[in-house]
């Protein structure tokens, strides 16, 4: 006796179901995983997926944030609040601790700490003995990510080798690793920025306030918008302007720029995202524009 399936999942339901399946595979295959949670929109979706994957049980992993010490307070406050609401354990490890230990050495005091997160992440992985890290990276963000596996093997130095990835067929994922090695797992690999915003709307997910249009002091530098903060002060010759902006992506203050926008609701953000002419990273990530291969290079050095 067989039946024919007539229904099809909507694209968001399909993406959600795939992500839940991936998280449960991590829980089933790995002995000590962790979920990287920054308070950003992608990792907020990840937490929602984790709820759908594991409730009414506890998450089978703690949450962890690698804090550069240069994050917007609205975001780190949100991070702490969300973890508390969920009743899940949050680990925070900071690049500043690595600097004190001497394992991170900045070339100059104003060098961005963003890429140094890799060092702190690897130290935290070793400290806790994590065998898998769940991250919210997406393949549409960047061409190195477009070729990365959902279960991405990293050696003892955290390195990604694009030429030697494990074949990944059907939905049969291989999360096996030896002690000291690590698997990075990206459950929302197949989501686009637009999918993320649609999901946030559908699930009514709360976001840090700076994702919505707000006024803040800005200088225009190299054609981009640079928020004026304690970490990123205006230079003497620059004119500070109050601008109405929002962040499409949040991260280290020194390398994340906002976009001009009056979108103060999720509906307006979705409408804007549907008609934007600039990619998410193109608009907002100052670190990816340094060279064509900078993400690929950072991943080879242990980055998410």
């Amino acid at each position: 006796m067989t039946t024919t399936t007539k229904q099809t999942l909507s694209h968001l339901d399909w993406l959600e179901s795939e992500a839940i399946h991936i998280m449960r595979e991590v829980a089933g295959q790995c002995s000590n995983p962790v979920l990287l949670f920054s308070g950003g929109k992608d990792s907020i979706c990840m937490l929602r997926i984790a709820e759908k994957a594991f409730r009414p049980g506890k998450f089978p992993f703690p949450l962890m944030h690698i804090d550069t010490g240069h994050n917007y307070k609205e975001v780190t406050d949100f991070r702490d609040k969300r973890a508390a609401e969920l009743g899940e354990r949050l680990i925070v490890r900071s690049v500043e601790e690595s600097m004190k230990r001497g394992t991170v050495v900045l070339k100059s005091p104003d060098e961005s700490r963003n890429k140094h997160q890799s060092v702190t992440l690897l130290e935290a992985i070793e400290e806790f003995g994590f065998d898998a890290c769940l991250g919210g990276a997406r393949r549409d963000e960047e061409k190195a990510r477009a070729k990365e596996r959902i279960f991405s093997f990293r050696d003892e130095f955290g390195q990604w080798d694009p030429k030697n990835q494990r074949p990944e067929l059907w939905d049969l994922y291989n999360a096996r690793s030896f002690k000291g090695e690590n698997i990075r797992v990206f459950p929302i690999s197949n989501w686009t920025e637009f999918d993320v915003w649609q999901y946030i709307e559908r699930e009514k997910l709360e976001l840090p306030s700076i994702y919505y249009a707000h006024t803040r002091p800005i200088v225009v530098r190299n054609g981009g918008l640079q928020p004026v903060t304690d970490v990123t002060p205006a230079r003497p010759d620059e004119k500070i302007e109050e601008m109405l902006v929002r962040f499409r992506t949040v991260g280290d203050i020194t390398c994340t720029a906002p976009v001009l926008s009056d979108a103060d609701t999720i509906e307006k953000i979705i409408a804007e995202t549907a008609t934007t002419t600039i990619t998410e990273r193109g608009a907002t990530r100052l670190d990816d524009q340094t060279s064509e291969a900078s993400m690929e290079q950072r991943k080879k050095e242990g980055y998410f």
Binding site: H11, K147, P162, K163, S189, N190, A293, E296
Partner: peptide
């Protein structure tokens, strides 16, 4: 166009995934 590692060797070494949508359907 692919990765630096591929351009160095002048070959495509791996599957790349790309996305588009028509408004009624999402494609991978």
């Amino acid at each position: 166009d692919g990765l630096q590692a591929e351009r160095e060797q002048g070959i495509t070494i791996d599957v790349a995934y790309r996305y588009f949508t028509t408004g009624t359907r999402k494609y991978i």
